[in-house]
């Protein structure tokens, strides 16, 4: 934790991956954030992900 503490004393620049609500919360607190619209392959549908893998 000691190593990470200084980070919070600096201005935060956040890259948020996945759920957009995390990015929205930070924006509301005036923290710079870039949102990456990422979803797990096939939206997390394991069956479809398995089929896609077979073709890779």
């Amino acid at each position: 934790m000691n190593k990470i503490n200084p980070l919070f004393k600096k201005e935060l620049k956040v890259v948020n991956v996945g759920l957009k609500s995390f990015a929205t919360d930070l924006k509301q607190q005036d923290i710079q954030v870039i949102h990456v619209d990422w979803r797990p392959p096939a939206g997390g549908n394991e069956r479809m992900a398995k089929l896609l893998n077979k073709l890779k």
Binding site: N45, M48, L51, L52, K54, L55
Partner: peptide, 19 residues
Amino acid sequence: FEDALEAFVALMEEEGIID
């Protein structure tokens, strides 16, 4: 699209292209 993917993989398996 999901049904088509199922069918495509099945075809590739039938033809012995994938396991």
